[in-house]
Design a protein around this nucleic acid. Structure first.
Lengths: 153, 153
DNA sequence: TGAAAACCCTGAAGTTACTTTAAGGTCAAG
DNA sequence: CTTGACCTTAAAGTAACTTCAGGGTTTTCA
């Protein structure tokens, strides 16, 4: 009554790819499981839970480093781990809030830029292209450390 | 009266690093400038403007691919470039808006998770750590294509 | 004049969190 | 006994740079 899973089944349950699981193993987030005679990985309940933890954290956009720390707290004595988890989460919430504020500013800037060129405008110039050449887009939006941008592969 | 700049001075004006400028050259965003006898790059006004354009676009969180397209529009005949720029910008605005919505959902989830563990709680368990283990954080927040997350180096 | 400081050069590797590719072994079914 | 689904590894690719290693050039100022 504790059926061990192969990587594909584990991947299905965790909603990720088998490669991602191997990657977590290489990164030390997930311990190496036993192997079958044919060298297949065999995962037990503990792995399933730990992977769920990791994927939940990733769904909350934490970095692997943040997750590594949380896992440490979880593995440690119950002593101060609650306070530590609290602090890490607070920090992460702050990152997310900061990034939202940044993007909202960005949205305004983009809409302003867009309005600089209506389809019916002077013949030669495009207000958008010109706006981007001359500093109409306010310079120096240094991205907050630890906060990624708008795009993803 | 057209003083050519060396890379360091150009970098200072554009608020970026010299390495970034060389990188844009390798990427084909910025044409290779002339060189001095000592093999130093010498930039003219056209480069200054083009780099400003690029940095403004980056400040608006566009990808280098988007910027490459905008530069094409700019270099092309004035024919349809305005409409093209319009379309690209609209798409980009949509990306940003989508990312904002995602992050706002995330913020709510994080705050809910945080509230699961108050400093004064049962001794053994941490509500946050437990919440992350069991799917309290809603699964399957597949990040929208073309939209990066919360963190940056 | 001479040497240190400031500036520039190239090419390669590192960053994040994976994904993709290549080349191949294992296992159940038909 | 072979086809197909599944698994293995190592290496390279992604975005937009940054950092590093190792070395030239130019300027400054003692």
């Amino acid at each position: 009554m504790e059926p061990r899973l192969r990587i594909g089944e584990l991947a299905r349950r965790a909603q990720c790819q088998a490669e991602t699981i191997r990657f977590y193993e290489r990164e030390g987030l997930l311990p190496a499981p036993e192997r079958t005679g044919g060298n297949y990985r065999l995962y037990a309940r503990e792995h399933v839970e730990r992977l769920a933890f990791i994927r939940n954290c990733r769904a909350l956009d934490m970095t692997l480093d943040e997750i590594r720390q949380l896992l440490q707290f979880r593995d440690d004595l119950p002593r101060n781990r609650c306070a530590a988890a609290h602090a890490l989460l607070d920090e992460h919430v702050a990152h997310v809030a900061a990034r939202i504020a940044e993007l909202q500013k960005l949205e305004l800037q983009l809409k302003a830029l867009r309005s600089q060129c209506q389809p019916t405008r002077t013949k030669r110039a495009c207000g958008i292209l010109d706006g981007l050449t001359h500093g109409d887009a306010p310079g120096a939006r240094r991205p907050a450390a630890h906060v990624r941008g708008t795009h993803r592969s």
